[in-house]
Design a binder for these strands. Structure first.
Length: 462
DNA sequence: TCTCATT
């Protein structure tokens, strides 16, 4: 909207006053204190030239300040001046690291020239790393990762000007030597993509809130690990799909993710004693996370005959493989954002076990007997978390289709789960999708084993 | 051992 420049040009009208050069550079500004808005930042940047556009990045759903901004000057030269004068040169009040002023990612397509360097000696500085990589090309950026105390984490990022240079550095340096004090030889590889980073963070959250935190009571941990499983599924799918495209066989009904993933996270993370968002978070600050979820849960639908409407309930009325807008990936991002925000606000020790002071999780029919599906629809699942019961097992597999039965096997003497069970779908495609997404899935320290259940007669030749 | 963030 603000970029009406071309229209003026086309009709040969004099520039409106904030036209930008054709070759203007959009800058990314990082390390901005979250209390500074556009108007506060303007004076700092205006000294290098007329600003065409300055936008502080806000969270799509919550409006929360992300601590960074985009800046485009009218003149290309201004951008260069600003970068030279400010990048890493000045630390804004309240920040521990210097301001970042550099071309936005969108300006230099492809992050395929950035390397992650691991197994460095913690004494090695940016300059040491620079010297090491210098022979292989033009280095645009070289950063040693440091903790809050300034100590090196023993790894670095090195950005070359081309992919080829980066590749040659990998060939020459990866595993080529072992730094003094390092536990293994030097690691040189392409840095994680954004998608990989998202996955990494989700996995870190599994560690933070997962079932292996003994301080957290069972009902909470069960549901949170389920939410994690969902996130991991989504992460895996996002990683496997190109540019966010979801293959039909593993696309999730968006509403279902809301209900099962996002809501679980949201309520699980409320502090003790609260049944609604605390006052310092306005309702409007978290609309997309909370509203559809709360409104969407109205209890178990029943059919006129008085029996629970099994399929409707399981799928929330959506066909299991619908591809809707927003995409499941978007919805997951949303859930994940919600979790991040609550975890930032409340330390883990204030977490409330779900169900104690909060709305109940969706009640799913108690599974009385195991019902077999047709051949190819029945799964054997092993390495289940100890506290998973029939319901948790079912919920874990609901995203893949209509679950007609789920059964965790219990030890009769101790009434403890034997950590394996069976899930039956009503069609083989759902079963296959579940295997694809869930087999090998890490929950805590264990990896799920998900495979087709052997047909009864196969194990008994006669 | 993958940054703090990239509409």
């Amino acid at each position: 909207v603000s970029d009406a420049g071309c229209r003026y040009r086309a009709s040969n009208i004099a520039p409106a006053g904030n036209m930008k050069d054709q070759d203007a550079i959009k800058l990314f500004i990082g390390q901005i204190p979250r209390n500074l808005e556009e108007k506060d930042l303007k004076p700092l940047f205006e000294q290098f030239g007329k600003i065409h556009e300055l936008t502080v990045l806000k969270d799509r759903y919550t409006g929360m300040h992300k601590g960074c901004a985009f800046l485009t000057y009218c003149a290309r030269e201004s951008a260069i001046k600003a970068q030279n004068a400010l990048h890493e040169q000045k630390t804004l009040p309240g920040m521990t690291r210097p301001i970042q002023v550099k071309p936005a990612d969108s300006e230099s397509r492809g992050e395929d020239r950035k390397l992650f360097v691991g197994m460095l000696n913690k004494q090695q500085t940016e300059e040491d790393v620079y010297r090491l990589f210098e022979p292989y090309g033009v280095i645009e950026e070289c950063t040693v990762l440091r903790g809050p105390d300034g100590n090196s984490k023993g790894c670095a990022f090195v950005k070359f000007s081309t992919h080829t240079e980066a590749q040659s550095a990998i060939s020459a340096l990866h595993g080529s030597q072992t730094m003094p004090g390092a536990s293994s030889s030097l690691v040189v590889k392409f840095a994680d993509t954004d998608k990989e980073r998202t996955i990494r963070r989700m996995q870190q959250m599994v560690g933070q809130f997962g079932i292996f935190n003994p301080a957290i009571a069972l009902p909470f941990s069960t549901y949170s690990s389920y939410a994690h499983a969902l996130m991991q599924q989504q992460a895996a799918i996002m990683a496997a799909s190109h540019g966010g495209y979801l293959t039909p066989s593993v696309a999730f009904p968006a509403t279902q993710i809301h209900q099962m993933g996002a809501r679980t996270c949201y309520f699980s993370l409320l502090p003790a004693g609260l049944s609604s968002p605390p006052a310092n978070i306005t309702t409007s600050a978290v609309p997309s996370i909370v509203t559809p979820i709360v409104n969407g849960f109205t209890g178990i639908p029943h059919q006129p005959n008085g029996h629970p409407a099994v399929e409707t309930m399981y799928t929330n009325g959506l066909p299991p493989y619908s591809t809707q807008s927003p995409t499941a990936a978007d919805t997951l991002q949303q859930a994940f954002t919600g979790v991040q925000q609550y975890t930032a606000i409340y330390p883990a020790t204030t977490l409330t076990p779900i169900g104690q002071t909060l709305p109940q999780p969706p009640q799913v029919i108690q599974q009385q007997q195991q019902r077999e599906g047709p051949e190819g629809c029945n799964l054997f699942i092993y390495h289940l978390p100890q506290e998973f019961g029939d319901n948790e097992l079912m919920q874990m597999f609901l995203p893949f289709g209509t679950v007609i039965s789920s059964k965790v096997f219990m030890d009769r003497a101790t009434n403890q789960s034997k950590c394996f069970g069976f899930v039956s779908f009503d069609n083989p495609a759902s079963a296959q999708a579940a295997i694809q997404a869930m087999n090998g899935f890490q929950i805590g320290m264990k990896r799920l084993k998900v495979q087709l259940k052997r047909p009864k007669d196969a194990s008994r030749p006669y």
